[in-house]
Nucleic acid binder design. Structure first.
Lengths: 336, 336
DNA sequence: TTGTAAGCGTTATCAT
DNA sequence: ATGATAACGCTTACAA
């Protein structure tokens, strides 16, 4: 069966290819009657416009690229899935690419997407993003790890952390430890700032966050575990009664550390995570965590790229509020 | 800066556009000298061929579609990531789509990919795949959940399970429970068969697998948990000393159930998972599991689509061997 | 409102 | 081995 093209449709409908094209693109200047007839024929013939030909003329590919550091990270896979959903609603499709947090790979991926003529790119920059020059002229929205100078969308990490700290304070904790993320990570720093702010404001009541109560680490499980070991390796009345981790994976690593040290959670140690990945509700005990609104972020990113939402100003990113998800790893502290 | 096209390259190189095109496509009939000169100009000008124009003429999009039930499932996200890697090596990109295990959505996605003119589709069918008609003429390789009548690539679930059972038998277990996957799932059934085979063969030594030692469940955490509860809700000398789950998530749910019942793992109960997702090494204690060779599967799928590997015959799928990953959830059984 | 026709940037055919 | 040129299937001025 010879493939059916726009001409076949035109011929059968008794109109010109131009009119068919107008119907295809919802151009207003087509009679209801003609539109109906043409649409009918299109359906009957099962005609599908060739996206390459379309894109070549119109310069619109209906493709969105998304570049993330690691699809294996549940946070990012949920982000991609949400973006796919949002894009599909608008007739767009998603090309995924992984940068492995490697700036060179990332630049390469972005180049590929550019030459693919995608209509926009959703980018979660690699951690050494500073090396990166983004192509001008192609709409790019930076997500999660905001970059100065580019419009971005993310959770409000800072106030999200505050949410968590306030919760711990309310439970009665005073020696609250913090596992921060990697030094150069923007969200990691925002979270750290949130912690410092909140502790400072807690003032005399909350013991000042001294460096010893802060451990720097990667966002991963193993780093969380060793950070936990570090924070817990001191006398009982010196060590934190609660630890706030910058990621759920860290928090789970920290649970492991506590377990290995024979410190019961939450009886002798409360642990709080950040992200709200599905995994967080599968641990034993279930992790209490600050949940990021991933779907909102993804939907907003897509809408910005499709101009359904104003492009956020370069120095004023769109931030979505986090919410606390109570699990079983937090409780009131034991007296010393 | 006016975009640089093939003509610009041709002009500067003092050749025709045809020759440039030949260089672009590694056509053999181009002098080394000319090829070098043209390539140089291409680099200098930063010329990137327009994929739409290319695709329109050549009918090749250098795009591969991948349709999976759920990107949030770590098994599938690793599959997608591996496929992206493999495709990139060949200059191909990946369009991801999620079916949410919904046949209608799945059909829609496949339709989209078809009209996108992707060069091939990697499909993990939804669980009610029987409703599905795959388009003829477009290379499709079915992965993981094999479908009778389509060429497929997967792990050898059956012998993978056997691997696990043999391991448990060797540890001394005889009452080995099994949490199966959903009834209509092909891999679930393969795993179940593997279990029945192995137990049968264990013969007198291994107690015959009666229905009560088998619990049917979804692949998810919650199902695993209730299946675990079911299997463990009996007198100590009646209940299994080891449970083999059909997925890691089930196994983790089962760990949870055991924990809630006060049954220590692995002292009083060994638990074995299946899949080998990253999560499996993060549990407390670390899960022993049968690991699927996801990367091999993804790479093979891509190569089949690109004709770099023979298309597996319709009734003889390519199966890759699993391997056992020893964790801390398995040990010799306690005497009754 | 609708038809006509000129491209869009390549690749492929046919000469040379 | 290379050049000239006609498609590829559609969108979009411009005309009618």
């Amino acid at each position: 069966m010879p493939k059916v093209g726009i001409r076949d449709v035109a011929k059968l409908a008794g109109v010109s290819t131009g009119t068919v094209s107008r119907v295809l693109n919802d151009h207003p200047s087509v009679t209801q009657e003609v539109r109906a007839r043409v649409s009918g024929i299109i359906k009957d013939l099962g005609y599908l416009p060739d996206p390459s030909a379309r894109s070549m003329r119109s310069k619109v590919s209906r493709l969105i690229g998304i570049v993330i550091p690691d699809l294996t990270n549940p946070f990012f896979s949920e982000l991609v899935q949400s973006a796919e959903q949002a894009a599909a609603k608008h007739g767009y499709n998603i090309i995924v690419m992984t940068s492995f947090d490697h700036a060179a790979k990332e630049a390469d991926r972005i180049g590929q997407l550019t030459s693919r003529k995608v209509d926009g790119i959703i980018l979660v920059p690699s951690n050494d993003f500073h090396t990166l020059k983004l192509p001008k002229g192609l709409p790019i929205v930076v997500v999660d790890r905001l970059m100065p100078g580019y419009s971005g969308i993310a959770s409000d990490h800072r106030s999200g952390v505050r949410l968590g700290i306030d919760y711990l304070l309310k439970l009665g904790h005073r020696r609250i430890g913090f596992i921060s993320g990697p030094q150069h990570s923007v969200p990691a720093n925002d979270r750290l700032k949130g912690y410092l702010d909140a502790m400072k404001q807690a003032g005399e009541g909350g013991r000042l966050a001294e460096p010893p109560l802060i451990a720097e680490a990667g966002f991963d499980y193993e780093s969380g575990r060793s950070a936990g070991n570090y924070l817990l390796a001191r006398a009982r009345n010196e060590r934190p009664t609660a630890i706030f981790a910058s990621s759920d994976q860290q928090a789970i690593g920290c649970m492991r550390a506590a377990y290995d040290l024979g410190i019961p959670v939450p009886a002798a140690l409360s642990i709080l995570g950040f992200d709200g990945i599905p995994l967080s509700s599968m641990t034993i005990p279930r992790l209490t965590t600050v949940k990021q609104p991933i779907q909102k972020i993804a939907a907003a990113a897509v809408e910005v790229l499709l101009n359904e939402q104003p492009v956020p100003s370069v120095d004023d990113p769109v931030l979505f509020a986090c919410e606390l998800s109570e699990g079983e790893t937090t409780a009131a502290p034991q007296p010393d």
